[in-house]
Write a protein that binds this DNA or RNA. Structure first.
Ligand code: FES
Ligand code: FES
Lengths: 144, 144
DNA sequence: AACAAAGAGGACAATTTTGTCCGAATTAAA
DNA sequence: TTTAATTCGGACAAAATTGTCCTCTTTGTT
């Protein structure tokens, strides 16, 4: 469904949000440990999230990654997916036609667009804060 | 969403079904032309579909690929996806946890399982015949 | 029997994705 | 001002996916 990079990006963002709610900065080492991902690769993805203004980085000693507290509830999963995997999952044809076009649809178009719309709605309506709070309450987990 | 191999496999199966309804066998050359896919790679995927008993192949002169007419309405998209991409899209965790487990769910679990169920339903309830007939009626297309 | 027209299968190549490493730049603290 | 902790960026490596090519086998036709 999502690329590995995107999965790591989402989980990392949630973990950073969780910590930012408690004014803690975290680095790639701690993040990759908590989300069970390769450290160096995760660091690359964090860089991409920084470039896309989803998370902030503070360089130097006592640095790390954080998210402005006020932004945590306005950052949606869709923002992260878009930054890493692009918008193909929202807009692309399920059978890989060059463009999904209702005027010249692929055989799956009518049914597929419903699934795609539901996925889009999920991603656009889910914010980082609610996901972080679920973790905090022990109702969900970032690794198993 | 699906791998390229799976996209080609679905489109090829629909095209073969369409022709089998009219008692025509088709080969990789014609198939790849009609679904706009690389010929040799498509041939590989066709082999896999044969091994999975989704399509039949007839070797030798006047050979080609076909689907038993009586099977066309009972072969579901899910069968093809399963044969090529496996069942991860139905059963796997959206955030890549080793297993989707409601007792130790990832943060997306509750919402994601709904999308996944809808996708599963789509694939399990859509048969090759209906897709082939749509093409025949000019209501959908295998390339653009 | 010989030939031609197919699919089967294995080896290989290109591309993309995933992952690693290391040096440079930045910053706080001693 | 030195040092240590940290992110940044580029080069590199490994693995998976996508794609190509060539030979073998099978089978209908002559
Ligand atoms: S054309 Fe394929 S999903 Fe719309
Ligand atoms: S645990 Fe992630 S989708 Fe179920």
């Amino acid at each position: 469904m999502f690329s590995k990079a995107c999965e790591y990006g989402i989980k990392a963002s949630i973990f950073i949000a969780l910590n930012s709610l408690e004014h803690r900065r975290v680095g790639p080492k701690e993040i990759s440990k908590e989300i069970n991902s390769p450290e160096a690769f995760t660091a690359k993805i964090l860089q991409a999230l920084v470039r896309n203004n989803i998370i902030n980085s503070i360089k130097g000693a006592h640095g790390g990654f954080e998210i402005d507290k006020k932004d945590i509830k306005t950052i949606m999963l869709a923002d992260i997916v878009n930054a890493i995997d692009g918008d193909n999952i929202y807009k692309g044809c399920g059978l890989g036609l060059q463009q999904c076009n209702a005027d010249k649809p692929c055989p799956m178009h009518e049914k597929f667009k419903l699934v795609r719309a539901e996925l889009k709605n999920l991603l656009e309506s889910t914010d980082l804060e609610s996901l972080a709070l679920d973790i905090k309450l022990g109702e969900s987990f970032l690794k198993n």
